[in-house]
Every structure is written in C-alpha cells, then in structure tokens.
Computed example of a mutant assay.
Amino acid sequence: MKNNNLSDQSIESLIKQRNLLKGVAIGFGIVLLLSFSVILYVAVQKKNFGLIAVLPASMITLLPILIRFGQINTEIKSRQIN
C-alpha cells in the first residue's frame, strides 16, 4: 500500500500530485456539468422532477478530491514558508 503521509513526500512529488488532482477535478467537474444539464433537460421534458434530487447529491462525489487537494496545498504552503 502507498504511503499517504504528506509530510514524508518531497515538494516535487506534492506539486505533481496537486497538478494531477487539479486536472482530475476540472475534468470531473466538466463531466458533472454536462450530466447535470442532461438530467435537468430530461426532468423537464418528462415532467419527472424527482430526477432533480440527484443533482445536489452528486456534488458529494467531488468532495474527496477537493479535500485532498486542500491538504496538499496546505502542506506545500507550509514548506514554502519555512
């Protein structure tokens, strides 16, 4: 299993992870926006407004990526200050 402790990793490794997570978050966000628009369109056309409840619930899927991104940014900033 990989070591997930941020303090043991080099600054280059952290920057590489940050850039990767940023790309993943942007790509996943675009896919979510497209799926939101399709679900919203289908819900309005079929008059099935229960589908709209899926939209806020699916935002939770971005949460782990954003939490890890914040942790990496905090670690990078703390090392650059020192």
Rank of each mutant, 00 (worst) to 15 (best):
residue 5 N to G: 04
residue 7 S to P: 07
residue 7 S to F: 11
residue 10 S to Q: 06
residue 10 S to H: 04
residue 11 I to H: 04
residue 11 I to S: 04
residue 13 S to Y: 08
residue 14 L to G: 02
residue 15 I to L: 11
residue 16 K to D: 04
residue 16 K to C: 05
residue 16 K to A: 07
residue 17 Q to E: 09
residue 19 N to R: 05
residue 20 L to E: 08
residue 20 L to H: 10
residue 20 L to P: 03
residue 22 K to C: 05
residue 23 G to K: 05
residue 23 G to M: 02
residue 24 V to G: 02
residue 26 I to M: 14
residue 27 G to S: 15
residue 29 G to N: 06
residue 30 I to Y: 11
residue 31 V to Y: 14
residue 31 V to E: 13
residue 33 L to R: 09
residue 39 I to L: 09
residue 42 V to I: 08
residue 43 A to E: 12
residue 44 V to D: 13
residue 45 Q to I: 14
residue 47 K to F: 11
residue 48 N to G: 04
residue 48 N to H: 10
residue 49 F to T: 10
residue 50 G to I: 13
residue 52 I to Y: 12
residue 53 A to F: 15
residue 53 A to T: 15
residue 54 V to K: 05
residue 54 V to E: 03
residue 55 L to V: 14
residue 57 A to I: 15
residue 57 A to V: 15
residue 57 A to C: 15
residue 58 S to C: 12
residue 61 T to P: 03
residue 61 T to Y: 15
residue 62 L to C: 02
residue 64 P to F: 00
residue 66 L to T: 00
residue 66 L to M: 03
residue 67 I to S: 01
residue 67 I to P: 01
residue 68 R to M: 00
residue 70 G to M: 02
residue 70 G to Y: 01
residue 71 Q to T: 00
residue 71 Q to E: 01
residue 71 Q to D: 00
residue 72 I to W: 00
residue 72 I to G: 00
residue 73 N to D: 03
residue 73 N to S: 06
residue 74 T to C: 08
residue 75 E to F: 05
residue 75 E to V: 03
residue 78 S to D: 07
residue 79 R to S: 07
residue 79 R to P: 03
residue 81 I to R: 08
residue 81 I to V: 07
